[in-house]
């Protein structure tokens, strides 16, 4: 960690503002940045989205293809969600194998959607134990301004909501594509991830890159359409009191409900 004098000054400013309940970019403590979602941006993908959360930008594509099921889960389709931070997104990003932060990002985004059971994977079986439909959701971060967790999560959800699942029939034991019969994916709920940072005793929603550097600890909570909690990940080098954890859950449910309304309006969406 090389902390420059500019970083140090910026941190002091952020801390001083927070003491008065103010944020460096003028937002309320529980206010996420503006969320802009375009879908269908990659026509060759079965579903896609470009999401801007403030100045953080993510492009996400969904590819759907027949695959072999996991050996112990022959009665359901495959869902895999990944995330990658591109070298063009930030000067500190290097090429090469993903570091632990990027691995955590991908796993937290995947877990939020998986544990919510957003896609009913039991509807994606072609032949039990032999052939199923795989849904692969890949996020690429193209511009960095903090909070990649939520940006990638919203991009994934928007891509899934707007995707079309092609139809396959089993012919001679192999899946064969039926042209022009794609349909909406089997959606059961809309998971929304909300990431919060704790700076001293203040909890803020959707930290930007400057705030991200000042956070003592982080909390990402994913809620479903019923307002229940389906995935949690604490991060950062400090902890939370029980009262702060309860506050985070309340913030994630309230903020999640507002973001869910934006996701429901996604163009070409199949929102339930």
């Amino acid at each position: 960690m090389n902390v420059s004098i500019i970083d140090d000054l910026r941190k002091k400013k952020i801390l001083a503002l927070l003491k008065d309940g103010q944020r460096v970019d003028g937002r309320a403590l529980d206010e996420p940045r503006p969320l802009v979602i375009d879908t269908g941006v990659i026509p060759k993908a079965e579903g896609s989205a470009r999401v801007r959360l403030g100045d953080t930008e993510v492009v996400c594509g969904v590819k759907i293809q027949p695959d072999k099921p996991f050996p112990d889960l022959g009665d359901r389709g495959i869902f895999i969600c990944t995330a990658e931070v591109l070298p063009l997104a930030d000067p500190n990003v290097e090429t090469g194998p993903p570091n632990e932060e990027v691995i955590e990002l991908a796993r937290v985004v995947d877990r939020g959607i998986r544990e919510s059971h957003m896609i009913d994977l039991t509807k994606l079986v072609l032949t039990k134990d032999k052939s199923v439909i795989g849904i692969f959701v890949d996020n690429t971060v193209t511009d960095y301004d903090g909070n990649l967790f939520d940006a990638c999560s919203y991009a994934s959800v928007a891509s899934i909501l707007s995707c079309k699942v092609p139809k396959w029939e089993i012919k001679n034991d192999a899946p064969s594509l039926v042209p022009d019969s794609a349909s909406a994916p089997p959606i059961t709920t809309i998971p929304v991830s909300v990431t919060m940072g704790r700076i001293a005793d203040t909890i803020i929603v959707d930290p930007n890159a400057d705030e991200w550097k000042c956070m003592d600890a982080r909390m990402t909570i994913t809620t479903n359409s019923e307002g229940n909690i389906c995935a949690v990940q604490k991060g950062g080098d400090d902890g939370f009191t029980f009262e702060q954890l309860v506050k985070c859950s309340e913030l994630s449910i309230a903020t999640g409900a507002k973001i869910r309304e934006i996701l429901k309006q996604v163009p070409g969406g199949n929102a339930c």
Partner: peptide, 24 residues
């Protein structure tokens, strides 16, 4: 002694009341 939670993860669906009870 400091009464701070330093690791928290969750897989699976909980209502807000269950979430509190689960942490406790």
């Amino acid at each position: 002694n400091l009464e701070k939670v330093t690791l928290l993860q969750l897989d699976g669906v909980l209502t807000p009341a269950e979430y509190k009870k689960c942490i406790e």
